[in-house]
Design a protein around this nucleic acid. Structure first.
Length: 842
RNA sequence: GCGGGUGUGGCGGAAUGGUAGACGCCGGGGACUUAAAAUCCCCUGGGCUUUGCCCGUGCCGGUUCGAGUCCGGCCACCCGCACCA
């Protein structure tokens, strides 16, 4: 007897096991089918899966399953970005080992993902904290070192003197360590760097070919790389020295009215040696805040050094200032200031009474038009000697040519992008595979001695890097001379781990990081899906590693991700009790129009819909939702309503509606056999059309990742089938519908196929093909024509498709409503859009 | 400040320059039931003098037979970068 309800608690696990046993989702690199690599950003194993993960992986899963149904060999893997600070924090706070904590979390989260029925190739699962992964990473790091793309130099770091550790910029809050609260010091340490700047131009150019990436992300990366072209040149100084400045506007050189150097510029430091007012000013600059708000309101401040700089063309003596708005980190740390055409210079000149000269004007006739603010735009050069009358671009070239000819300057490209510092003074990361020998210097660990594994017996009870104070780990013999030497105790930035994991997913030989030919069969990733928060760092680093590995001959692709999709967040209402404390969705209930706390019945304030966060307690646990509604309802909710790039507000009523729809489909699938034979077995052409139109539209929507639209079309088709009388067409429609929902609600599809014996062949729905849409059925015989009078809709009428213009016009003019609105006026013009609309202009 | 994005019912949102509000949620009414749940049916942008008409896609203007959509100018909110010479 037929059950009335679909029972996910029974069905979900059954089908997940069936897919496992059939090895449905194992990717075959040797397959002749067209390949499709669908990848979602792998999670950090923080403890439990978040609803945001579920949304991300559901989108990828629908695409992966759809690709399989359309005849592709699909690689859809999953792994763990498993190194990082939270594991060490847990070790310090709870006394657990980072490895134990991490692997426990991985077990939990893997279980959660499996409950959602994702079509993942678990045979390729990897964790970056596994020596089988990071050992290969060490090999790649050594390869890059030998290619000259890795180097060491001294660099300033944020040092927390209490925790005895280096902090990332994000971990310094108001100058204090985020954990210890201690004042952070700047320390110079020997650090490892990857030479990403060597690829700056390539990484910039490559963006132009990434049509599958959001424009927003490409722009963010472009700005991050920050290319600017200009002139670096030398001012001779009245004290006998000189100062190098950099400008992107060499055309405005005749408008320079002063020179400014950064407070930490050597020239400023020199002046401070003998001038204590200068020293005081430099101190003042250092004290300035660095927050966004402070910078925005910060006043331009300067200190006149009394030194003069000689203008290279006019010979004029320009004052040299120390200025708080000049940065040592960019260009040469010194500028020529042109107040007429740079707003900062303008503000500064106003304050200190310096000349403001116009050297670019809309036309030569406006050479002396007054300036009320800096004019950074294009125009024609004026008041500028030999470049008068030139355009900006032409003048730039002319000035650079003169400077180079005179030997006092050269055209130069400056980048905002810096080399990537990858040293971390921490335990839970990839050990940097180098040995420091007093005699031989820095020596790479021989590859046959890889992996350099982390010691397991480590102590987190005292601050600092446990690798440094481990009794034996760092003591080794030098691979070159055999003398006593020490291992490098820094580990690699975790972004290195995620810079090549997509290669290891594609190919996993035991003896090397990946097989070049096998990787070539899968890459680039056809569709990469993840959060916008990785728009710059992760995605730029992964692009860099790919190019670097291609550069040293290990790879055949330059860009790892052909298409990128950044999905929105999952949000939820927030709830606050009267005392201001946050309440979780499970702690409140609706009481009429109000909300009250379940515990004590007191009123609750409903706050904004915000990103789910533990601190505001507006989180829902995916496991609870799977328990209550089953995996398919949760998956369906993740795809419904909001466009995938926008935020998705989680709501109880929303997920309940999805649960209802699952049951509604179940009941409909139960009707598949009705009317399939006998007297009722007639065709229903209208329904056939609806089915084929939906097949084509849903396919297009999935390929465009417009899941919300695909969902809406499936609702429409469901309603149309429900309303249709029994017929062979209706039974076919139901079995087609089962295939359409299969990528989204795979458990329901399998269970219904088996339970109601819906004829799709004998195999699993997971192995079924996507239905074909018959082009002949994609258009209707009869169309609705909108009839407008002077652009306003007055009537609609049905007409056969393809009716000639004249006939449509006649039909429209015959309409009683049209005649009423024309009120006998003369028809001046009739616009006919065949099969759509007639507009009568009177 | 610079760059980018978004503004459509009570809510999430649909709509190749051609019937604005598909589809879902909420809400209302009804059927079934002893009752409830479940399910099914109907209504659901605003207004009016309600056989029907008028207004309506952030605001102002423009192009067009026709504008949510294109153009110009504003406003609001969101995101990114930020004294980058």
């Amino acid at each position: 007897m037929t059950e009335q309800r679909f029972d996910p608690s029974h069905a979900d696990g059954r089908w997940q096991r069936a897919w496992d046993e059939a090895r449905c989702f194992a990717a075959d690199s040797a397959s002749n089918k067209p390949k499709s690599y669908v990848l979602e950003m792998f999670p950090y194993p923080s403890g439990r899966i978040h609803v945001g993960h579920v949304r991300n992986y559901t989108m990828g899963d629908v695409l992966a399953r759809y690709k399989r149904m359309t005849g592709h060999e699909v690689l859809h893997p999953m792994g763990w970005d498993a190194f990082g600070m939270p594991a060490e924090n847990a070790a310090m706070e709870k006394g657990v080992h980072p490895a134990g904590w991490t692997y426990h979390n991985i077990d939990t989260m893997r279980g959660q993902l499996k409950r959602l029925g994702f079509a993942l190739d678990w045979s390729r699962e990897l964790a970056t904290c596994d020596p089988n992964y990071y050992g290969h990473e060490q090999a790649l790091f050594i390869d890059l070192y030998q290619a000259g793309l890795v180097y060491r130099r001294q660099s300033a770091v944020n040092w927390d003197p209490v925790d005895q550790t280096v902090l990332a910029n994000e971990q310094v809050i108001d100058g204090r360590g985020w954990r210890s609260g201690a004042l952070v010091e700047k320390r110079q340490l020997d650090q490892w760097f990857l030479k990403i700047t060597a690829f700056a131009q390539e990484l910039l150019d490559g963006l132009g070919e990434l049509d599958g990436w959001p424009e927003k992300v490409r722009l963010m990366q472009e700005n991050w790389i920050g290319k600017s072209e200009g002139l670096q040149f030398r001012f001779d100084l009245t004290n006998g020295g000189s100062v190098e400045v950099y400008t992107t506007r060499p055309d405005t050189v005749f408008g320079a009215s002063f020179v400014a150097v950064a407070p930490d510029h050597p020239l400023a430091q020199d002046v401070a040696m003998y001038n204590c007012d200068a020293a005081k000013f430099i101190e003042l600059c250092k004290r300035g805040g660095t927050t966004a708000a402070e910078l925005e309101t910060a006043e331009k401040l300067g200190f006149d050094t009394g030194i003069g700089a000689i203008h290279p063309f006019t010979g004029a003596r320009l004052p040299v200032f120390i200025a708080n708005f000049v940065l040592m980190e960019y260009g040469t740390g010194a500028i020529m200031a042109v107040p007429g055409h740079d707003q900062r210079d303008f503000d500064f000149a106003r304050k200190y009474g310096l000349p403001i000269v116009r050297v670019v004007a809309p036309s030569a006739a406006e050479a002396d038009a007054p300036l009320s603010e800096a004019e950074p735009g294009d125009g024609v050069l004026v008041n500028s000697g030999f470049i008068d009358g030139m355009g900006v671009a032409e003048a730039k070239r002319a000035v650079i040519d003169r400077a180079q000819g005179g030997g006092w300057g050269e055209g130069k490209t400056v980048w905002r992008l810096r080399d990537w510092g990858v040293s971390r003074q921490r335990y839970w990361g990839t050990p940097i595979p180098f040995i420091h020998c007093a005699a031989c210097g820095v020596v790479p660990v021989p590859k046959d001695q890889l992996p350099v594994t982390l010691p397991e017996d480590v102590d987190f009870t005292t601050p600092g890097n446990p690798l440094v104070r481990h009794p034996t780990w760092k003591h080794v013999a030098c691979p070159q001379c055999g003398a006593a030497a020490e291992r490098e105790t820094d580990t690699l930035d975790t972004f290195v781990n995620s810079s090549w994991y997509f290669l290891r997913f594609a190919s996993q030989p035991a003896d090397r990081p990946f097989d070049r030919a096998e990787v070539a069969r899968w890459l680039p990733v056809e569709q990469y899906i993840g959060g916008i928060e990785h728009a710059i760092l992760h995605l730029l680093y992964a692009r860099f590693w790919t190019r670097a590995l291609a550069h040293i001959g290990q790879l055949d692709v330059n860009e790892p991700f052909a298409s990128l999709f950044t999905q929105g967040m999952v949000t939820h209402e927030t709830y606050r009790a009267g005392d201001g404390s946050w309440l979780s969705p499970g702690e409140v209930r609706r009481d009429g129009d109000d909300w009250v706390a379940i515990a004590d019945g007191r009123p609750v304030t409903v706050g904004r819909v915000e990103k789910m966060s533990k601190s505001k307690k507006n989180v829902v646990d995916p496991d609870d939702m799977v328990d209550r509604f089953g995996a398919d309802a949760v998956r369906w909710f993740m795809l419904s309503d909001s466009p995938p790039e926008r935020d998705l507000p989680w709501s109880d009523s929303g997920i309940e509606g999805c649960g209802r729809f699952v049951q509604r489909l179940w009941r409909l699938f139960g009707q598949c056999g009705l009317g399939g034979a006998g007297a009722d077995a007639v065709d229903d052409r209208a329904l056939d059309r609806k089915v084929h139109q939906t097949v084509a539209a849903v396919a297009a929507d999935i390929e465009a990742l417009a899941f919300n639209k695909a969902v809406a079309r499936i609702y429409e088709l469901t309603a149309a089938i429900e309303k249709a009388p029994p017929s062979a067409s209706r039974s076919n429609a139901i079995s087609t519908l089962l295939l359409l929902i299969a990528p989204m609600m795979p458990h329901l599809a399998e269970e219904a196929r088996e339970h109601f014996n819906i004829g799709l062949g004998l195999g699993l729905v997971a192995e079924a093909a996507w239905p074909e849409a018959d082009p002949a059925l994609l258009v209707d015989d009869e169309v609705t024509i909108a009839v407008q009078v002077k652009g306003k809709l007055r009537d609609t009428l049905m007409a056969p498709r393809g009716l000639p213009r004249e006939e449509l016009e006649a039909l429209a003019l015959a309409s009683e409503k049209v005649q009423r609105f024309l009120e006998g006026a003369e028809v001046r013009k009739v616009i006919v859009v065949p099969d759509r609309l007639v507009n009568i202009v009177a």
